[in-house]
Design a protein around this nucleic acid. Structure first.
Length: 548
RNA sequence: GCGAAAGUAGCUCAGCUGGUAGAGCAUAACGUUGCCAACGUUAGGGUCGUCGGUUCAAAUCCGAUCUUUCGCUCCA
């Protein structure tokens, strides 16, 4: 088998995705929309199959997990309680010279009397920046190689340009208290809020009307005051697209627990779309603003979270590996303390070795009781659990009321789809009809993930063979198996086409079928064929799908 | 957001210094063949990402913009 060059594997998978109908660029005929993707005829099947497998293993096959499907738009108080509305808007600043954008709270903070050298990447850049500063601020900094100097912090709010050693500034500027991390530039824009959640307005009356009226009535206000006023108006009817599906499980914790009489430990699972205004989008469908998640919140007794964290990490790892050709490409990595989100006391990332290196596929986090407590606090609901069988560890009395701890396996569907496309892609050298080498591309998707399970192919388009094939196809449909009739082109070409689509089995109807009622079944991976009875074909394929 | 590269037929690409677009594969039809990318004949398909500028003339030069890829930054 020819080894794939990993740098071009991504390109090949993207190209095949488009050609075979797995993934298309969104709005392509209008020039495409930044990092939004559509799932094509095969992609939608693959995505659903991944999600169905997840649902089956996480919900159907478990007595201790129930599912929900919550709305994408939730009460905006949910996001206040979860901390998303605060945490989502980080103040960002642009360097006016280099155009670098960075987070103000993470920037270096030179103190009064400190020099403010601007370290450029090279001499050429230094010259360009020198000119830009001269043009914009009308001061001529000194240049030494790739460093520009002459700026100094005077006090907390002021910096100055010191052209000589006299100690007197030729010009002073307001100082923001920090400089840009890469160049050390103190020439910065104001801090701006970048909302990472998608905001919209609910209600039929456009909020622009209220804003216009407000602005007209408050013409004397300055920019900052106006902004605050407008924010108030907008926020009144603002709704947000969920940035994760998890919050719905916390908010519906009591309803699920009570309606289904669930006893801790138990979980609530959900699959669906989430939305984030990512700062950067990258790697095809790996990170995009609209994405799909498969999340489960597993509620456990306080103190047992470590044990359950390990349990779910292992279960999830097994699941990913079971459906892949190469389990060695998966690993898990414990988060460092400084990497942990504010709500977590431990976290594992399940990572996959993508063409650009190991990167996240699923996070298994121990979220403590943070979320339930926050929602209890903000909503006034009693989001706790009463266990009659247990003793309260503090009072020693029978019956224990506590806020459950939460273990959260949160997987990206879209990332999973990318992983399985990458894992499935194989190029092989196989003999052609004359025995010479020819190459074939085959998507070795797990049969249960394959968009099409079985292709039924009449060897020729005549002698009644198409009728037999179509009859078999409808038999598969009745059994709930996605089959496909295909009569275009030579038989060899049809096999190769279904190799690329990842179809695991091809049934071929030939002249002998009419004589003895047998067909050939061809295996995608081995390319081996056997003759089986036409009437047993459905059973045989059903059996292989279950056992695979 | 910054830097670099790219965008020409469904796909992969060619098109040299400006002169009104080509190949292979793919697609469709007919014929022949009949088990691993067959052959023959024929056909369809591009306002060269978009907008603007220079020019007698722009796929080609210039500017802007959108999109993609890679690197940086970011990823609560």
């Amino acid at each position: 088998m020819a080894e794939n060059n990993s740098s071009s594997l991504m390109e090949k998978v993207i190209s095949l995705s488009k050609q075979r109908g797995f993934v298309f660029q969104s709005s392509e005929i209008y020039g495409g929309l930044k990092s939004a993707y559509d799932y094509g005829p095969l992609g939608v099947e693959l995505k659903r199959n991944i999600m169905n497998e997840w649902w089956r293993s996480m919900v159907h096959e478990r007595e201790d997990v129930v599912g929900i499907d919550a709305s994408i738009i939730m009460h905006s108080k949910v996001w206040h309680a979860s901390g998303h509305l605060a945490g989502f808007s980080d103040p960002l600043v642009d360097c006016l010279i280099s155009k670098e954008r960075f987070r103000a709270d993470k920037a270096p903070r030179p103190q009064p009397k400190d020099e403010l050298p601007i370290e450029c990447a090279d001499k050429g850049q230094a010259k360009i920046y020198l000119e830009a500063i001269q043009k914009r601020f009308n001061i001529e900094l000194k240049r030494n190689g790739k460093t520009l100097y002459g700026m100094k912090v005077i006090d907390e709010n002021t910096m100055g340009f010191f052209p000589d050693d006299s100690g007197k500034p030729a010009e002073t500027f307001p100082y923001k208290g920090y400089v840009s991390p890469t160049f050390g530039s103190p020439f910065l824009s104001d801090e701006r809020q970048f909302n990472l959640m998608f905001r919209s307005q609910i209600g039929p009356i456009d909020v622009m009307g209220d804003i216009t009226a407000y602005v007209e009535q408050n013409k004397e206000l300055d920019g900052k005051e106006l902004r605050t006023g407008i924010e108030e108006i907008v926020k009144k009817s603002a709704v947000y697209l969920r940035p994760e599906t998890a919050q719905a499980m916390f908010v519906q914790f009591l309803n699920c627990q009570q309606s289904m009489s669930m006893k801790v430990p138990f979980g609530i699972a959900q699959m669906g779309k989430s939305f984030r205004n990512e700062v950067t989008v990258e790697h095809f469908i790996f990170r995009s603003c609209e994405f799909e998640q498969m999340e489960m919140e597993f509620f456990v007794e306080p103190g047992s979270q470590k044990e359950w964290l390990d349990y779910w990490r292992d279960r999830r790892m097994e699941w990913w590996q079971k459906l892949a050709n190469d389990p060695s490409k998966f690993r898990y990595r414990a988060h460092e303390k400084d990497e942990l989100a504010h709500y977590a006391d431990a976290c594992y990332d399940i990572e996959y070795e993508y063409p650009w290196g190991f990167d996240e596929l699923e996070g298994v986090a121990s979220r403590t009781d943070y979320d339930l407590k926050k929602h209890a606090e903000h909503s006034g609901a009693k989001l706790s659990y009463f266990d009659q069988q247990k003793q309260d560890p503090e009072t020693g009395k029978n019956g224990w009321r506590y806020t459950p701890y939460v273990i959260e396996p949160a997987a990206g569907v879209t990332r999973g789809l990318l992983v399985y496309l990458l894992d499935a892609y194989h190029e092989e050298t196989v003999p052609n009809a004359d025995g010479a080498d020819s190459s074939r591309v085959v998507m070795k998707l797990h049969p249960r993930l394959s968009p099409i399970k079985v292709a039924v192919l009449p060897l020729v388009k005549k002698e009644g063979l198409p009728d037999i094939a179509r009859e078999m196809v409808s038999g598969f449909f009745k059994a709930g198996i996605n089959a496909r009739y295909d009569e275009q082109h030579s038989i060899g070409k049809r096999y190769r086409r279904h190799d690329e689509a990842g179809t695991p089995y091809c049934l071929t109807i030939d002249g002998q079928t009419k004589e003895d009622g047998t067909v050939t079944i061809r295996d995608r991976d081995t390319m081996k064929q056997e003759r089986i009875s036409k009437d047993e074909a459905l059973q045989i394929i059903q059996k292989r799908l279950i056992e695979s």
